[in-house]
Computed example of a mutant assay.
Amino acid sequence: MTSDDLNSIAVIGGGTMGVGIAYVAALAGMPVAVVEPDNGRAEGMRRTIRDTVASAIGRGKLDQAGGDALARRITHVAAVEDLAAELSLIIESIPERVDLKLDVLARCAARRPRLLASNTSALSIDRLSQAVSDPGTFLGMHFFNPVWSIKLVELVRGAATSEATLATARVFVAALGKESLTVRDVPGFATSRLDLIASLEAMRMLESGVASAADIDRASVLAYRHPVGPLRLSDIVGLDVRLDIARTLEAVHGERFRPPQLLIDMVAEGKLGVKSGHGFFAWPDPSRKEA
């Protein structure tokens, strides 16, 4: 399969990751349907696309005509059942809840896509494949936030994932201008385990008063040349997402992935990072963005 064959893409979920995946696919010239049943989130998705296109035009990455064409390639539907049958690729990008993903993946499989992927950060692809009628066409396709900036996509091969499915996934990733690595289906894969363990340790350092959030992040950026510190990155990812992944990996890998009480308390208080306007750092209030 060539990139020209990937001419019909759908993304399930209009949150931060779903919008990012839709944007980079549309930037690569692919028409993308985004399934998002929540009207407020759908409007937020449209706003994010407008803002990102405007930013790209302002930085000279796109001209006005190219930006307008990109935005037109992204459409919105309210339900999986509204998607056309036999799409080239459907990518599920919804919250890290097994029950929710199993339901959505079963509904996606009923649309008979040539390829079906989950953007899960930590859940077992073999477990999720139980909802899929043809697990040979199913794999993990783990993008990173912000999707438009980070060049890596982690492909997760389940026990039944076929060589043809992996090959097609690699073609898709390359068409996006990104690179892929392939890992086997071990909870947390490779990147989530490395990323999460650093973030949890940074939270424990903050919790015990080692240094401020800003200085912990500066240490990571200046000493190890990370582009962003672990606490700021956690705010961007979403502290609720961090907590869900930590609990998943703690159940499998043990105490080293135990979420700090600080993280548990912040999520309970609604301090989720960028999406709520407050996390380890203060962020612009998302409810005050102009439409």
Rank of each mutant, 00 (worst) to 15 (best):
A79H: 14
L100W: 08
G18F: 15
L196Q: 07
I12W: 00
I49D: 10
S3Y: 13
G140H: 05
S8Q: 14
A79N: 15
L243E: 05
P146T: 12
T75W: 03
K151I: 00
F144A: 01
S234Y: 03
V274Y: 12
T161M: 12
S133M: 00
G40Y: 03
D185Y: 10
T120L: 00
G209F: 13
P227L: 06
P37N: 03
D215Q: 05
E201R: 10
I236R: 08
A268T: 01
K151S: 07
D5C: 07
A246C: 05
E179Y: 12
H278L: 07
R107N: 04
V34Y: 01
P284M: 03
E81W: 04
N39F: 04
S55D: 13
V237K: 01
D63E: 07
A78M: 05
R114M: 09
A190K: 03
D235H: 08
K275G: 09
D103M: 02
I91D: 04
S149R: 15
I197A: 14
T48K: 11
D244I: 02
G40M: 01
L262T: 15
F172E: 03
L27A: 04
M141R: 00
A213G: 01
A219H: 07
N119A: 13
A42C: 01
S208R: 14
V104K: 00
S121T: 05
V53P: 14
D38V: 06
T165A: 15
L206A: 09
I125K: 04
A223W: 04
V34C: 05
A84I: 03
R114T: 13
P37R: 00
G14R: 13
G44D: 08
G209Q: 15
L87W: 00
I150F: 09
A131L: 05
R232L: 08
P227T: 04
A211N: 05
R107W: 06
L194A: 01
A69M: 10
A291W: 09
G20E: 12
P230I: 01
Q64G: 02
W283T: 00
R46N: 04
R204G: 01
A117D: 11
A54N: 12
V210D: 06
A198Q: 11
V98T: 15
A202G: 13
L196C: 11
R204D: 03
V19N: 14
L155H: 07
T48W: 11
R72E: 14
R107L: 03
D63G: 06
E255Y: 05
S208Y: 11
S121V: 11
N145R: 02
K61A: 09
V153H: 08
R258Y: 12
A25L: 03
G29R: 10
A106R: 15
P230L: 04
P286F: 00
E86C: 09
S287K: 12
T168W: 10
S276E: 06
L100A: 10
K271E: 14
H142L: 13
I264Y: 01
P227S: 11
R232A: 13
P146H: 09
T120E: 02
E207F: 08
A28G: 12
V267I: 07
G140I: 08
A219Q: 06
A69P: 11
D126I: 13
R218G: 10
K289W: 15
G67D: 13
G15S: 00
G40P: 00
G60R: 07
